[in-house]
Design a protein around this nucleic acid. Structure first.
Lengths: 141, 141
DNA sequence: TTTCTTGTTTGTAATCATTACAGTCAATAT
DNA sequence: ATATTGACTGTAATGATTACAAACAAGAAA
């Protein structure tokens, strides 16, 4: 379902993007941690392993991935941008308790609205907020 | 369809919120300009009429309206928060050319997902991006 | 009217995410 | 070995938002 690290690497090569150490590490993190991280989360996860890593590089790299279509951005209401390597159409659910962002399968046919009949739609996003199953169970204890 | 200024005023009274001059002006602006404005847009629109108006007051007031359920917030990808007095479930479309945000009627039943069967959903938002009809016509000229 | 109390507004300063920029570094080609 | 190109880094700048304390307004009590 998720794209593999190898296929993503190939995609970068196809687009003539150099596979630098930093880029590969960030790509690897995104591919194996589908948690819709913020730039800071990526930086925190990697700067022990790459002590010279700069947060600017994380910004540059993730924005590059967005440009070439490897990632999409996700604006939660908390004024922070999250990056998602999961690029096929799907929705998101953010838990108000634990702040985790879940992927949600959506029937994309449900997306059409007659209000948009003459509009050109490039991107669509469905976003839910509430309490996730895990946190609901904890509440009941 | 949209709530009226008068009904919104009544709603504030019901919730024991004082009807100060600033609050009423901001409320009036939100009710008559359903353009999903940013804080800055509200401030720019009103500070000529209320020269002492502070941007902090606009923030405080709009966040108060959100707390009591008169407004909702809308996170566009540009790292800015917009405020919408239109509280019943609906979607949004943001034009990449003119940056205008349109309301879109949505059949909300279409968006239930089996992935969320045991989740508690408080809020749902459907967001489209692309080019609006107006800008498409201009392009063709 | 005066005083008191409560809550609102204001302006400045602080915070936080993001971007700009210029210098440094690394890899590859010549 | 040198030159060129592009990537990386760190600092500074920006812009939205929040924190905070002082000033202010309105109504209640004296």
């Amino acid at each position: 379902m998720n794209p593999t690290y190898e296929s993503l690497k190939q995609e970068l090569l196809n687009q003539d993007i150099k596979l630098s150490h930093q880029r590969l590490k960030i790509l690897e993190f995104m591919a194996s941690n589908v948690i819709h991280p913020t730039v800071d989360q990526v930086y925190q996860a990697l700067h022990h392993e790459i002590p010279t890593l700069s947060k600017t590089t994380v910004y540059n790299t993730l924005n590059l991935f967005v440009e070439v279509g490897l990632c999409i951005t996700l604006a939660t209401e908390e004024n922070e941008i999250r990056y998602d390597i999961h690029t096929f159409p799907h929705g998101h659910f953010k838990c108000k308790k634990c702040n985790q962002v879940y992927n949600v399968d959506i029937d994309s046919h449900a997306f059409t609205s007659k209000d948009l009949a003459h509009f050109e739609i490039h991107h669509q996003e469905v976003f839910y907020k509430g309490i996730c199953e895990k946190c609901l169970l904890i509440q009941k204890l």
